[in-house]
Design a protein around this nucleic acid. Structure first.
Length: 352
DNA sequence: TTCCGGGCCG
DNA sequence: CGGCCAGGAA
């Protein structure tokens, strides 16, 4: 590993979330916090910096060479040691590095700027609507940066395609981004406004039902807990946690989508409790990941892994040759299929 | 486990 | 043009 790459990696790992991909070229060259915790790091002020760096290079090289998370697990099967922190800090920083060298669709997402001008209650409802619309759609590239919340400058899965943004814009223009008006609007109208987002018929039903609940139970606002959000039709764990973050600015859990689910399992970051088997559902992944991942990372991990899953660790035919942590990855070059999608023999019974 | 309903990729 | 995508519900 070259020194410049190490410096870049160290810098990236020290970046506070959100990661500002666009301004990467303008990054200052000063190093902040070390990539890995160095036992003798008090000497940092005394020892010349290049020597410190050299030592870290050696440490990292050793780390790579000696043990993968899986090997550690096999050596200490009684401890879930595969979630060892230093390995994962290292892997995460390398993923960040890979994320920067390749543009991912998720980086171009632009939550609707019109939403920011709304009153808090309406904004929260708009976030909920946007999340419902964006669910189950392929997040594709449009343009721009985003700033829905100052604290969370970028976040995936909101208005991630032009059709989603346009649908949201049409709802806004028709005043339907408020629970009261959405409740009164009829389903066909909603359906025509949100077309052609995926599953528009179901989503129109869900939106109307959600609006009714918001009006009758929450005075036009949205539920403020994960459990209550989950009671809304069309809202599952992923949307519930996304909305908690985006609307209430509260991190109650990791927003686990298929990319987080898939990549976490490939890297051996998660497992069914007490085993080393892969998790079988995003919910299991969420619980398992939360057991060791520091809470400060719960938001950023989604952005990190979604983009990584879009560009390199793709669900189908992952590009392990391009991946700089393949040495760490128990699944590298194994041509695995996504845990989420197992069906391949689909028979369309044609009878005419 | 399968479906949903469009869009996009190869 | 065929197959894949993504989260929730039945």
């Amino acid at each position: 590993m070259s020194l410049s790459l190490l410096r870049q990696t160290a810098y990236l790992s020290s970046l506070p979330f959100p990661i500002r991909f666009i301004s990467f070229t303008a990054m200052p060259k000063t190093r902040r916090t070390p990539l890995l915790r160095n036992p003798g790091s008090e000497a940092d002020g005394v020892v010349p910096k290049n020597r410190v760096r050299k030592r870290r290079v050696e440490m990292i090289a050793k780390e790579v060479k000696t043990e993968s998370p899986q090997e550690k697990f096999l050596r200490h099967p009684e401890i879930e040691d595969f979630a060892n922190k230093s390995d994962n800090v290292y892997s995460q920083s390398r993923i960040r590095s890979m994320r920067l060298s390749e543009h991912a669709p998720v980086d171009s997402i632009d939550p609707d700027e019109g939403v920011t001008s709304l009153q808090p209650k309406e904004r929260r409802f708009a976030v909920l609507v946007g999340s419902l619309l964006s669910s189950q759609t392929k997040g594709h590239v449009t343009h721009g940066k985003c700033s829905l919340l100052n604290e969370l400058v970028t976040y995936p899965n909101m208005f991630s395609s032009s059709s989603l943004r346009e649908a949201n814009q049409r709802l806004l223009e028709n005043g339907l981004l408020r629970a009261y008006t959405m409740d009164k609007a009829d389903e066909a109208t909603i359906m025509s406004l949100i077309y052609p987002v995926g599953f528009y018929t179901r989503k129109a039903q869900h939106l109307k039902q959600v609006a009714k609940i918001c009006v009758s139970k929450y005075d036009g606002d949205i539920p403020s807990t994960v459990d209550e959000l989950l009671l809304l039709p069309g809202v599952g764990p992923k949307i519930a946690h996304l909305v908690m973050i985006m609307a209430w600015n509260k991190v109650e859990g990791i927003c686990v989508d298929t990319h987080v689910h898939c990549v976490s399992n490939r890297l051996g970051w998660v497992s069914r409790s007490g085993t080393k088997q892969a998790t079988r559902s995003p919910e299991e992944t969420r619980v398992s990941l939360q057991q060791w991942l520091p809470k400060e990372e719960w938001v950023s991990i989604n952005l990190l892994l979604v983009g990584f899953g879009q560009t390199i660790c793709t669900p189908l035919r992952p590009r392990c040759a391009k991946c700089t942590i393949s040495k760490f990855c128990p699944s590298a070059f194994k041509e695995i299929s996504s845990p989420a999608s197992t069906s391949k023999t689909r028979r369309p019974k044609k009878e005419l």
